[in-house]
Amino acid sequence: MPTRVIPKPDAGAERTIRWSRVVSFVLVALAAIVLSLRPELFGDPQHQPAHALLHVWRIVVGLTLAVAALGVQVVVGVRWRRDLRRAAEDDGDPPGNRAPADR
């Protein structure tokens, strides 16, 4: 059974994919930095009653950055797939798989 063949992206799509990878890498790196921050960097916990919030905000911000990195990849992938379908419809090919007899 033949495998699916995905066409190579055009120049514009390659730039978008490269850009999305850079943005995702930066977001993941920032998430790692935020998650690795130690609350002691922000002062003595005995003098700051809201010290527990520092634990919470760094976790929330770190996870939000990581989810944003994933979101960038998903959005770029969905857009690229939509453009491929649109290009196939413009060529007259129906989207999706064709029956083996049609190949």
Rank of each mutant, 00 (worst) to 15 (best):
P2A: 03
T3G: 13
R4F: 03
R4N: 11
P9I: 01
P9Y: 00
P9V: 00
D10A: 05
D10F: 00
A11T: 03
G12L: 10
G12F: 10
G12I: 05
A13L: 10
A13S: 14
E14Q: 14
E14F: 08
R15S: 14
R18A: 14
R18T: 05
R18I: 02
R18F: 15
S20G: 11
S20N: 08
S20M: 03
V23W: 02
S24Q: 07
S24T: 09
L27W: 02
V28A: 12
V28L: 13
A29F: 13
A29K: 06
A29V: 06
L30S: 08
A31E: 06
A31M: 05
S36N: 09
R38A: 07
R38P: 09
F42H: 08
F42L: 14
G43E: 03
D44L: 11
P45V: 00
P45G: 04
H47C: 04
H47K: 14
H47L: 13
Q48W: 15
P49Q: 09
A52G: 13
A52S: 12
A52Q: 06
L53R: 06
L53N: 10
L54E: 09
L54K: 11
H55Y: 12
H55R: 07
V56W: 04
W57P: 01
W57R: 06
R58A: 12
I59G: 04
I59D: 01
V60E: 06
V60Y: 02
L63D: 09
L63H: 11
L65I: 05
L65K: 13
L65E: 13
V67F: 09
A68V: 01
A69G: 07
A69H: 02
A69R: 01
L70R: 06
Q73A: 09
V74Y: 02
V74G: 11
V76E: 08
G77F: 03
V78A: 07
V78M: 04
V78P: 01
W80H: 10
R81W: 15
R82G: 00
R82S: 02
D83G: 05
D83A: 14
L84H: 00
R86Q: 08
R86C: 00
A87F: 01
D90T: 11
D91E: 14
D91I: 10
D91F: 11
D93I: 06
D93R: 15
D93Q: 13
D93T: 12
P94S: 08
P94M: 02
P95Q: 07
P95S: 05
P95N: 09
G96H: 08
N97K: 04
D102T: 09
R103V: 04
R103W: 07
R103G: 11
